[in-house]
């Protein structure tokens, strides 16, 4: 009797959260699935067409190219963000003067909007007035100004540079929290045993922050798989659609071509792919931590 009453009370307490999730997550998700089975247009209407959108998506070369490009972008940028973030986190837990300077300088771009920072970098990379071409020319590394966004590979690296500058501070802060949670006595014991700074980093800091690194990697990888703003502003998907990301292509279909049903289908496919990739990543990390 008491157990039943406690169960009912528990459900009552959980009800607001359950209602919130049901209304803001479950219902939109179900509606998205429903829409993906229709030819819904932004202009109105939408009839049930079964799996036609999924069949179309299977043969949509631009979508698969965009997905591959997004994966390439994620594979390049994630190690850079985590590696640089970890090194900067080490600086940010150093003696106070260095720590304060590092935290302020590296974290400052995080508070700038992604749209604003992308526009800033568009101008920095500009072939006529951009400072990056000027710098490279003054260093004698290039003779003529480079047109960065005329080439998909150059454009990709220009975007990666801008995003590393923009978000590396976020990973740094997460990793700083992880490093600071390690007990000072462990480091003191290691120092008494004669461990050098880098030995302490490799043997103590790194293993004991592996969970934070896993979390930061996951957050960073998911964020990169959902990249949109930076490519929309910096490359416009060009040249010749080579730098379209998955979300950019979904946006194109849903809001530029008015094909909301098809856009919903692509969204579900992307969500499924990210879910599988994230689960695999977590399982691999868990197995790595267990061995």
């Amino acid at each position: 009797m008491i157990a039943t009453r406690r169960g009912a009370m528990g459900l009552l307490y959980a009800a607001p959260a359950v209602a919130f999730v049901a209304f803001f997550v479950v219902y939109p998700m179900l509606d998205l699935i429903r829409m993906s089975l229709t030819n819904a247009s932004l202009l109105g209407g939408g009839e049930f067409i079964g799996m036609k959108n999924y069949v179309k998506a299977a043969g949509d070369a631009t979508f698969w190219h965009a997905l591959a490009f997004t994966a390439e972008y994620t594979l390049f940028i994630t190690p850079i963000l985590i590696g640089a973030g970890f090194l900067l986190a080490l600086l940010a837990v150093a003696p106070p003067r260095i720590a304060k300077l590092t935290r302020a300088v590296v974290f400052m771009p995080v508070v700038i909007g992604l749209g604003s920072s992308s526009l800033l970098w568009v101008w920095l990379f500009d072939e006529q007035v951009g400072l990056i071409n000027k710098l490279l020319q003054d260093l004698g590394l290039i003779g003529q100004p480079m047109v960065w966004f005329a080439d998909a590979t150059l454009g990709l690296w220009a975007v990666i540079l801008s995003i590393v500058w923009k978000v590396v501070g976020y990973g740094m802060i997460l990793l700083v929290a992880g490093i600071q949670s390690i007990g000072a006595d462990i480091f003191e014991a290691a120092m008494l045993d004669g461990a050098s700074y880098w030995q302490r980093v490799v043997r103590i800091t790194l293993p004991l922050t592996v969970r934070t690194i896993a979390l930061t990697t996951l957050v960073s990888a998911i964020g990169s798989m959902l990249a949109f703003d930076q490519f929309y502003i910096m490359t416009s998907g060009g040249p010749k659609s080579e730098t379209f990301t998955s979300v950019y292509w979904i946006y194109q279909n849903s809001f530029i071509y008015f094909k909301q049903g098809y856009g919903a289908t692509l969204s579900i496919l992307l969500m499924a792919i990210i879910f599988i990739a994230s689960t695999a990543q977590l399982l691999l990390m868990r197995r790595g931590a267990g061995t």
Binding site: S236, P239, S241, I256
Partner: peptide, 23 residues
Amino acid sequence: FHFNDMVNSDSSPWIQMIQTAVF
């Protein structure tokens, strides 16, 4: 119909044609 698909979008056949032909 579909002016955006054919012409106005960043991935349209119209702009692809111009870029491939000219550049």
